[in-house]
Design a binder for these strands. Sequence first.
RNA 1: GCUCCUGUAGACGAAUUGGUUAAGUCACUGCUCUUUCACAGCAGAGGUUGCGGGUUCGAACCCCGUCGGGAGUACCA
Length: 514
Amino acid sequence: MTNIRVRFAPSPTGALHIGGVRTALYNYLLAKKMGGTFILRIEDTDQTRYVAGAEKYILDALQWCNISPDEGPGIGGAYGPYRQSERKDLYQKYAEKLLADGNAYYAFDTPEALDEKRAAMEAEKQVFRYDSSTRMEMVNSLTLSSEAVQKRLDSGEGYTIRLKVPREEQVQVHDLIRGTVTFQSNELDDKIMLKSDGMPTYHLANIVDDHLMEISHVIRGEEWLPSTAHHVLLYRYLGWENEMPKFAHLPLILKPSGKGKLSKRDGDKLGMPVFPIGWEAEKAEDSFRGFREYGFDPKAVLNFLAFLGWNPGTEQEIFSLEELAAAFSIDKIGKSGARFDYQKAQWFNQQYIIASEDQTLARSLRNDFGDQLAGVSDDFLASFCGLLKERVTFMTDFMEMGYYFFEPVKTYEEKPIRKKWKPEQRHNFDALTAALAAIDDFTAEHLETVIKNFIAAKELKFGEVFPMLRIALTGTMSGPDLFKMAALIGKATVLERLESGYNHFDQVKAAANS
RNA sequence: GCUCCUGUAGACGAAUUGGUUAAGUCACUGCUCUUUCACAGCAGAGGUUGCGGGUUCGAACCCCGUCGGGAGUACCA
């Protein structure tokens, strides 16, 4: 195979959707696997939809995911510029070639006239399409005399250039995922190549750039499959059919319900991220959080995304980026749309946290919660992470679930207190506290022997002692190993919390009985 | 409406390309780990492979029909 060059070509019309990230990932993986080049191209041909900051967002998002492009705007490369708006003049030339060869024509119909036409047809339950069957009824260089056309052109009147799609032809698209797809040319409309503002449409710009940038594989979303027939025609008319890139149209990522493709609204509605990183809009209600802000590890997100529509055919599920690149192949990509399974995403993240080194997690926490952790030592933080990492889904869970490692207990779960606390046993608990106070070397092992010996000596049951200790120390019934936790918190804090905890328990019981 | 894509447990999906009893994972249930939660391990439940025909000794896989889901149908990408 020759040089592999793939591109991710988003439009800077807003934040990059998670489906776009997957497209970028698959492109990246193919490039890395084959020792090829991954290119970012910004398709900003629609100035009306341009959103400031979107391009930066795309770069930031790819960087967060660690799938940065080899060539692109702000990165460089031998095939630039990589913003289509900066390549505007280029497209003009190819549009003129289409015109000269009779494969395109000038069209003077205004958007308003077209809208009217469409509305009129719709009223009769028909659909208007600007194609080989209707173009002779429209205002264009096919129906106007050449003098009239020249006059309109000279007058500065707006015009578009449309592709003249042939009649009665079959157009075949070879797709690496779906095989050969055949379209009848009569079903294809005369797509606009050059808009009245002089900018190309996606179709023209895309083909020209893919060719000029020597793209070998076009990996993009399934929504492009229907227009690929036009693209094949364009390659043919521009004389590039023999060097046409290979196509692979990815299945869509569907809503959790399976009805329709995943959208921004699903994220708002279901309380889950559908974008890689957050977006700061002018209006607060237009801002949103991404996977990053939800506490996801980008490696877990990538792993999750990779499996949405692809699988290696083995039973391995946890893959590093390098392993993904090594295992990746286009023919293992599925054909049907994959639903966005947020629970699975969470599972992946949990697996990544569990597999992380305690020190790594500690560093990450200090990075995100430095203020709250000001007086906490690295060793303490690492031990804390080791204790909690198996019970956590997100990085943010550490602080929520384990806040009591750093500050006093805020709230106590009342149910177990009401059920299990016996004020008449208080003297035993106080005696246990005294026994703990006598421990010099306050390790988990010593704590365990002292407490267990105490329980045995007093002929108590584990079930009536442990839960009370746990609640007094942490306020909650769920948490890490009691002894390790207590050892980490330290003797002074433990003694203090037992005392205030028991006092609180007595109050709860007194209130319940009154 | 028209064009194209697609259909295997609730979800992701495997099945050496027509060959035993249709993998595995997430989610769910139970057990174990003799303090909780979680992790882990074990076990369980969940399927006429959308449906109906056909070809064949044999069909998830091939053929015909049918139904469902999705995408496209812009001077948006």
